[in-house]
């Protein structure tokens, strides 16, 4: 068996690697709280936290932060809502029924989720231009929903299949209608699946950069990731104020980190048994 020394070495290696991997995240938080004067020095300040929120204040007071936040929230809400409804109905169909076209639908769903945005965005750009939906919430939401629905259908399919149809049938024997049986029995059992899928849709819509870059070229219709990029570029025209830039990055990242930690376990399982967009 392993000697004590070996075990200690391995433990030490694991902790060192953990520190290396988490360093960029720590660096973002740390610098966000340090005054610019400290950051201008050529010797990095590794510890401790500065504890100042001045950088956050100046990032938020950037003229377009509020509108970018509004855009991101509206798009995310629309995407999460429609994605859940569409994916739920689709998942119900493929896990509770055998019908003509089921296999084609499954193949389409699985293939589409593998397609990279880079291979479609020129066409999507042309489509939205001709529909007059460039720079609009609706245009970018349509593309996002179409991108997220396949994985959520596949993910929810597993949850629906996990609830035996006999439960519903038993409730119907006891005098409930099909709809009532569904709402009272199946729906509550599905809640965790819906939450996981909803958070997945949230993460995708909130973080998305590529499609947003091409479909929202106007400055007034930027989402948060585009705003952050613009903020960095604007800062770079002067001497980049890294403290403010890191504060801005933190503002975009924190909601994501929180939601991500909530559903991580379920998503890893889903990723391996299903698939996902990166």
């Amino acid at each position: 068996m392993k000697t004590g020394l070996q075990r200690h070495t391995l433990n030490l290696v694991a902790i060192t690697l953990a520190l290396i991997w988490v360093f960029p995240v720590y660096w973002m938080l740390n610098s966000a709280m340090l005054p610019n004067r400290t950051l201008q020095s050529f010797t990095p300040t590794f510890v401790p936290f500065g504890g100042s929120f001045r950088n956050f204040r100046s990032a938020i007071s950037d003229g377009s932060f509020a509108s970018a936040l509004g855009m991101s929230i509206s798009i995310t809400l629309i995407v999460v809502f429609f994605c859940l409804v569409f994916a739920f109905l689709g998942a119900l169909a493929i896990s509770r029924f055998r019908f003509k076209g089921r296999k084609s639908f499954l193949i389409a769903v699985l293939l589409i989720q593998m397609l990279p945005a880079e291979a479609l965005f020129i066409a999507q750009y042309k489509m939205m231009t001709s529909l007059g939906l460039l720079n609009s919430i609706i245009g970018v939401s349509i593309i996002y929903i179409a991108a997220v629905v396949p994985f959520t259908v596949w993910m929810l399919r597993g949850f629906v299949a996990g609830i035996p149809a006999e439960l519903e049938e038993a409730a119907m024997v006891d005098g409930l209608s099909r709809v009532q049986a569904f709402m009272r029995i199946t729906f509550p059992l599905l809640a965790p699946g819906l939450v996981a899928s909803g958070v997945y849709a949230f993460l995708q819509a909130w973080n998305e950069f590529t499609v947003a870059l091409i479909l929202l070229p106007e400055e007034s219709s930027r989402t948060l990731p585009l705003w952050l990029r613009g903020f960095v570029q604007a800062s770079a025209t002067r001497e980049t104020d890294w403290g403010e830039v890191m504060a801005a990055s933190t503002l975009v990242a924190v909601p994501v980190i929180i939601f991500f930690l909530i559903v991580q376990g379920r998503m890893t399982a889903g990723l391996v048994s299903g698939a996902v967009k990166g």
Binding site: N207, P225, T250, A253, V256, F260
Partner: peptide, 9 residues
């Protein structure tokens, strides 16, 4: 933590 960081950030 590294996994959950948004790409742009």
């Amino acid at each position: 933590l590294a996994w959950s960081m948004p790409i742009v950030a």
